[in-house]
Amino acid sequence: VTLFVALYDYEAITEDDLSFHKGEKFQILNSSEGDWWEARSLTTGETGYIPSNYVAPVD
């Protein structure tokens, strides 16, 4: 499982989006939707859509 880490803070715009803070880690559930990925936060356990350009793979 490839994990991703937030590079910036993000505040949800719609109820389907997931708010997060810089440094938060995610498991990507679906990355086939283009620039918005469905993800689960490993910090909160919540799922929602995140902007793919706000995250990077964890080394």
Results as ranks from 00 to 15, higher is better:
residue 20 F to Q: 00
residue 57 P to V: 07
residue 29 L to D: 05
residue 22 K to P: 04
residue 50 I to N: 00
residue 56 A to K: 10
residue 8 Y to K: 08
residue 17 D to N: 14
residue 29 L to G: 04
residue 5 V to P: 00
residue 1 V to W: 10
residue 49 Y to H: 08
residue 54 Y to F: 11
residue 45 G to E: 05
residue 47 T to Y: 08
residue 23 G to E: 04
residue 7 L to V: 06
residue 36 W to C: 07
residue 5 V to Y: 13
residue 24 E to A: 05
residue 24 E to I: 02
residue 25 K to Q: 12
residue 25 K to P: 05
residue 51 P to Q: 06
residue 57 P to L: 08
residue 52 S to L: 05
residue 5 V to F: 09
residue 49 Y to R: 15
residue 12 A to C: 05
residue 1 V to H: 14
residue 16 D to S: 14
residue 31 S to F: 15
residue 53 N to I: 10
residue 28 I to V: 10
residue 19 S to T: 09
residue 1 V to D: 14
residue 21 H to A: 11
residue 53 N to E: 09
residue 26 F to I: 05
residue 24 E to G: 02
residue 59 D to S: 13
residue 45 G to P: 00
residue 34 G to V: 14
residue 34 G to W: 11
residue 21 H to P: 06
residue 14 T to S: 15
residue 5 V to A: 05
residue 32 S to N: 11
residue 36 W to K: 13
residue 51 P to N: 09
residue 54 Y to K: 08
residue 53 N to A: 14
residue 47 T to C: 10
residue 7 L to S: 03
residue 2 T to A: 11
residue 36 W to F: 10
residue 59 D to T: 12
residue 12 A to G: 12
residue 37 W to Q: 03
residue 32 S to T: 11
residue 34 G to S: 14
residue 33 E to M: 15
residue 15 E to K: 14
residue 46 E to I: 10
residue 3 L to I: 15
residue 37 W to K: 03
residue 27 Q to K: 08
residue 42 L to T: 07
residue 37 W to G: 00
residue 39 A to I: 03
residue 8 Y to A: 09
residue 32 S to I: 11
residue 3 L to E: 10
residue 45 G to Q: 07
residue 24 E to M: 06
residue 15 E to R: 10
residue 41 S to W: 01
residue 42 L to G: 03
residue 29 L to S: 05
residue 25 K to S: 06
residue 2 T to L: 12
residue 54 Y to T: 05
residue 32 S to C: 12
residue 49 Y to V: 07
residue 24 E to C: 06
residue 48 G to F: 03
residue 5 V to D: 02
residue 28 I to H: 01
residue 29 L to A: 05
residue 43 T to R: 13
residue 53 N to G: 10
residue 12 A to E: 02
residue 13 I to Q: 15
residue 2 T to K: 12
residue 25 K to L: 15
residue 47 T to A: 07
residue 21 H to I: 13
residue 41 S to Q: 05
residue 50 I to E: 00
residue 31 S to Y: 13
residue 42 L to N: 04
residue 48 G to W: 02
residue 43 T to M: 10
residue 40 R to E: 06
residue 18 L to P: 02
residue 42 L to Q: 07
residue 15 E to A: 14
residue 9 D to N: 07
residue 8 Y to F: 12
residue 40 R to G: 02
residue 56 A to D: 05
residue 16 D to I: 14
